[in-house]
Nucleic acid binder design. Sequence first.
DNA 1: GGCCAGGACACCA
DNA 2: TGGTGTCATGGC
Length: 206
Amino acid sequence: MACYGPQHWWPGESPFEVMVGAILTQQAAWINVEQAIANLKATDVLSPKGLRQIPEPELARLISPAIYHNTKAKKLKALVNWLRESYGDDLDRLFSREIKDLRSELLSVYGIGEETADSIILYAAKKPICVVDAYTRRIMARLGMVSGDISYHACQSLFMNNLPADTQIFNEYHALLVQLGKAVCRPHPLHHKCCLADICPTASKK
DNA sequence: GGCCAGGACACCA
DNA sequence: TGGTGTCATGGC
């Protein structure tokens, strides 16, 4: 698995861009999310203030490549309004909170669920938390390590309890699992065998 | 033409 | 509390 190497995942240029991407990527292919973010940049509205000022229908049009654009436009509006009302658009103040508090704060915002909240904590706030997405659970199930209907929390705990609490490791793990999931878990899952040690040999042996 | 992609929410039983 | 429907683009 060393061939996969560091993934440098989530190529956002700023924490706010990562937050926007986390919402846009819900049930969407990243290639389309990139296009939506490019549209926001081209219109110069990729900022809390910019997203508040742009009319919702126009915002929806700009992010249309990222599927469910009307719903996601509402979610982005909810996010930037919450940022202003609760933190005065000060991301540093938001991200200075403890992980547990930060997570519950994010979950209170319309449109931010567990995976989106954890993605923001890991990739924008750069705090050590494990992101569990569809690929992660799919791979774990295929490996027979968990049942197919494992809860988000249970799967997350499995990683958190067996890996050192290091932002970089969780970052690479998530990225590698998605790449691995794309590579082996769709066409012929039963023809591929792998284990966590293949992905990260330095992981805790706990 | 059908399926899938780095989910979340509302509604109902 | 859990299951189901809805959202609704673009590439292969």
